[in-house]
Design a protein around this nucleic acid. Structure first.
Length: 154
DNA sequence: GCCAACGTTGGC
DNA sequence: GCCAACGTTGGC
């Protein structure tokens, strides 16, 4: 049973267009440094899961495209790289702390902006819209997923 | 285990 | 730049 997720990305780091230009239109989702989000990758996310690709910390936050989980989790390579901003001195190859997962573009959509999302009753339950939410990966229900697709078709 | 201090996120 | 909200750290 495929699940659905919303994954936040700062477009200055990886935008939907960057994803579209990437080899195989796939990027390794690295840099997650929050245990709840990591545990989703470790315990629940699987190849084929649907992904809402969300632009955050930018002039026009919102859903910018659809993607899918394209493979299995593995240790996040950036945790071992002292030159990376995501380097973690407490992680080792023997005992990695952080995970990455490959994400492949399905299609670039129109921007479903945050104000429009907030105005849609069908999206009121979405985790990303809840007060104080900061999780970079959040589960999306089947109903929420369908509601997003319906809004994107308008 | 408690909890104050601090750091980060992210919209505005 | 501001600031609310939340997660993490570390002293006790």
């Amino acid at each position: 049973m495929p699940r659905h997720w919303l994954m936040k990305s700062e477009p200055d780091e990886v935008s939907i267009d960057d994803l579209a230009r990437a080899p195989g239109q796939t990027v390794a989702w690295t840099g997650v440094r929050n245990y709840q989000a990591r545990n989703f990758m470790r315990d629940e996310m699987q190849r084929g899961d649907g992904v809402l690709f969300y632009h955050s910390s930018c002039p026009q936050p919102g859903i910018a495209g659809l993607a899918e989980i394209a493979g299995a989790t593995e240790p996040d390579a950036t945790q071992f790289d002292p030159a990376s901003p995501y380097f973690d001195a407490k992680a080792s190859r023997e005992q990695p702390r952080w995970l990455q997962i490959p994400v492949r573009l399905v299609r670039v959509t129109r921007l479903l902006g945050l104000p429009e999302m907030r105005g849609a009753p069908s999206l009121a339950t979405m985790r990303v819209l809840q007060r104080g939410n900061r999780l970079s990966i959040t589960p999306v229900t089947a109903a929420e997923w369908r509601a997003v697709l319906a809004l994107l078709d308008r």
